[in-house]
């Protein structure tokens, strides 16, 4: 059983149906990349998980407990980092974390020690300025600190890196990686390189449902094209291979770029052995023979197209 389970979730705004029977299961202690185009429904899903929006139908359970709209009981197990965290500008980070700790119901001494620990984790320990004077990256880091304050079992991050520069992004990803193991992280984004960097599970939301779901290696294996890259020592060998009679079949497509030949086998009965046999017959030895791995980007484009 996952720490977060979503079953047949439907949500409509006017005539626009955003979620059309979404099913999702987030395993414990994973970093779960929740990917989708802008407007795909990622934020809507997260707000329903947090009890801030009412689903038209379906169910959401966090740690086995059903989420009820308007009630915030399940949120004691959740930390939330919004895409643009907004705080009270007249407070300093310590004052804000104290407020959050008091609302959560943490003991006073724990609030102080935990706040200091988290401000150190996010690099704001010595920051005495008011939050109103913070940069966006600093606010985002404080957003993670406040979300981790009650040691949540589930940390929900809604596009935390989308508006940051590369350094800010790296800082946030490093903090999330450091939090892995202590909490399960649902990381919503449309920046696929961020997902590939830190996530071990991925779900692609498209047309109100999950179009892809699993570990990155599972997904790649499942959607692996029967494609190969061969690199030859010179263009002559590459040309000879490209024009081999055995490869002139409708189920085989080839493309050559200098000394590199890309081969796609659409016939499922064909595999690398067939190409190796052709190479052997032609007495050609490639410098490189590689199975073509789909990237997350190509998979994403493929499912949302």
């Amino acid at each position: 059983m996952g720490i977060l389970e979503i079953k047949q979730l439907y949500k409509r705004f006017g005539h626009h149906e955003v979620l059309k029977g979404l099913d999702m299961d987030v395993p414990e202690h994973s970093i779960f990349g929740f990917v989708g185009q802008n407007g795909a429904g990622k934020t809507t899903t997260m707000k329903i998980i947090l009890g801030l929006l009412k689903a038209d139908s379906g169910s959401v359970t966090v740690c086995g407990e059903k989420v009820t709209y308007g009630e915030t009981k399940t949120n004691r197990n959740i930390g939330f980092v919004p895409d643009v965290p907004e705080f009270y500008g007249y407070m300093n980070p310590m004052e804000y974390l104290k407020l959050c700790g008091e609302i959560t119901g943490l003991p006073k001494n724990k609030i102080k020690s935990r706040s200091e620990e988290l401000l150190e984790l996010v690099g704001l320990k010595d920051e005495k300025r008011k939050i109103g004077q913070f940069s966006r990256g600093m606010k985002q880091r404080l957003g993670i600190a406040q979300a981790l304050l009650n040691e949540p079992k589930l940390l929900i991050c809604d596009e935390p890196t989308s508006a940051l520069d590369p350094i800010g992004r790296k800082e946030i990803l490093d903090i999330l990686l450091a939090a892995k193991g202590k909490t399960t992280i649902v990381f919503s984004t449309h920046i696929l390189s961020d997902v590939e960097r830190i996530c071990d599970h991925i779900a692609v939301l498209h047309d109100g449902k999950l179009a892809l779901c699993g570990t990155l290696s599972e997904i790649k294996k499942r959607h692996r094209h029967n494609g190969f890259i061969l690199e030859f020592e010179n263009e002559k060998d590459a040309f000879l291979f490209e024009n081999a009679e055995e490869l002139k079949q409708p189920s085989i497509s080839l493309s050559r770029d200098g000394t590199t030949v890309r081969v796609f086998l659409t016939d499922r009965n064909m595999d690398g052995h067939f190409l190796l046999s052709v190479l052997s017959q032609k007495r050609l030895v490639p410098l490189k023979f590689e199975v073509m791995e789909p990237t997350l980007e190509t998979l994403f484009v493929e499912v949302v197209r």
Partner: peptide
């Protein structure tokens, strides 16, 4: 409009 309340509501503050 600023969204400052969202954080606190997700921390268990009742409406």
């Amino acid at each position: 409009s600023k969204g400052t309340l969202i954080n606190l509501l997700t921390k268990g503050l009742s409406r």
